[in-house]
Amino acid sequence: MTRQQGRPGALAGIDASAAELVDRMVDLAVRGLPPGYTGGGFVFTRRGRRGADGRWTAAGEGRSVRYAAIVALGVATLPPERRRAALAGDTVHDLVGALVKGLPDVANLGDAALIAWAAAESGHPETGTALARLAELEARLTPGDPVYTVEAAWALAALVAADRAGAGAPDLAGRVAHARDRLLGGLGTDRLYRHVIGPASWYRAHVGCFADQVYPLQALARLHARTGDAEALAAAERIAAGICAAQGPQGQWWWHYDARTGEVVEGYPVYSVHQLSMAPMALLDLADAGGTSYLAEIARGLHWMTSRPETDEELIVEELDLTWRKAARDDPKKIVRGARAVATAVSPRARIAVLDRVYPPVAVDRECRPYELGWLLYAWLFTLPRDHPGAGG
């Protein structure tokens, strides 16, 4: 893929250097995935280790079904020869097949949704099996049970993808409608999404993280592109406008928000995956669905990766084919996050400004998780089709 094609091409029309960075990062992702691929799946993380000679290496730790499913979505967007390169010679069907085979042991709604989504978009013959497991886990929920916003969004995205793929799941239209109503109901009259749909701890019930905005925005935009659902588009537009209005002066996509007002509760950490992948992915899906284009905001977020006020350390590590995970406060006990959640629960605009001086954002988290590279590919190489005439904008 050249910069003049697809989403990087659109970005090049307003910011050539940002588009060049995207091309560079796509190549890095293809090279960076194989070191985390083992035994037909992916490690949880590649953690940086500094040797006696001062050089960094990255060692794999753990396993993650969730991250493997996200990688499958991303790698499926590559040309066939590059898919095998990213998976150390395997195919996307190999990876998705292994994930589907392990579904009886998957008890998390979000993990099952991601596997079903990857199966549907890759055209895997076991898509029906994945959708059936997702239905089983949904059936365990009773009305009023809390559901994580991210997982509710992934469930809707998976079902919309299955509908687009023509999957023959029982009552697929009804399941899409249920997932749609749950996600829209979780927003209600708030400016942004909260972390949980349903009951939550009082001191942070009003808080939503960046992921809680991105994935619903994406799912609702996709629903509109598929069905022309005007209410879904309006909600997606509300979320997009909210996170873009709150974006930092150097392009930072901040971490925690007061869902009631849209104001930032706590900005740090700033994550590489948000800057390179998740914000572009959701906002570009919105534009593809006929909504507002936020290319300028996307470009600002990308430029944070190469120049930022928090640290001079390089976050793009070419010699290891990865990005360091985040720039964060020197606050391992997450005191700032907790204090500001409590303060804003009582007084929405409380800041406790002294915490910015006591815990400056100078730390770098030297690890890279496979989903970060998977979403990067998906964000920049996917183009969302519009299936419904009402989704033309």
Score class of each variant (00 low, 15 high):
Gly186Asn: 06
Ala282Asp: 01
Trp375Gly: 02
Gly6Ile: 03
Leu172Cys: 01
Asn108Arg: 12
Val92Ile: 09
Asp105Leu: 08
Glu231Tyr: 01
Leu184Arg: 12
Gly9His: 02
Arg329Gly: 08
Thr77Pro: 04
Gly97Ile: 09
Trp253Cys: 02
Val92Thr: 07
Leu131Ile: 09
Asn108Leu: 06
Ala153Pro: 05
Gly97Arg: 07
Leu217Trp: 04
Lys101Tyr: 09
Lys333Asn: 07
Ala167Pro: 08
Ala86Asp: 05
Leu137Met: 01
Glu237Pro: 12
Arg366Ala: 10
Ala328Phe: 03
Trp304Ser: 01
Ala353His: 07
Leu184Lys: 13
Thr91Met: 08
Val71Thr: 09
Asp163Cys: 00
Leu141Met: 08
Val30Asp: 04
Ala88Phe: 11
Glu151His: 12
Glu266His: 15
Met305Ser: 13
Met25Thr: 08
Gln247Asp: 05
Ala72Thr: 09
Leu233Pro: 04
Ala158Trp: 00
Gly89Leu: 08
Pro348Phe: 12
Ala246Lys: 03
Ala177Phe: 09
Arg82Ile: 12
Ala169Phe: 12
Asp365Arg: 14
Ala169Asn: 07
Arg133His: 15
Val358Ile: 15
Asp23Lys: 06
Val65Tyr: 12
Val65Ser: 10
Leu283Val: 08
Ala118Ser: 05
Gly251Thr: 11
Arg82Met: 13
Ala58His: 07
Gly9Leu: 06
Val75Tyr: 05
Gly110Ile: 00
Ala116Tyr: 00
Pro348His: 10
Ala59Ile: 14
Gly242Tyr: 00
Val71Met: 05
Ala112Pro: 06
Val317Trp: 07
Leu28Cys: 05
Glu318Arg: 13
Val265Asn: 13
Ser201Met: 11
Asp331Asn: 06
Ala76Glu: 14
Arg182Phe: 02
Leu156Trp: 00
Gly242Asp: 00
Ala88Glu: 13
Glu138Asn: 05
Ala173Pro: 11
Tyr215Gln: 02
Leu73Tyr: 01
Val96Phe: 10
Thr292Ser: 13
Asp387Leu: 06
Phe42Glu: 02
Thr77Lys: 12
Glu81Phe: 06
Gly198Cys: 05
Ala76Lys: 08
Asp285Lys: 05
Val26Ser: 03
Ala152Asp: 00
Leu381Gly: 03
Ala179Val: 03
Pro146Trp: 02
Thr323Leu: 15
Arg82Pro: 10
Ala173Phe: 07
Ile316Cys: 07
Leu103Gly: 11
Ala130Gln: 02
Arg357Met: 07
Thr127His: 09
Ala112His: 07
His124Glu: 01
Gly267Tyr: 03
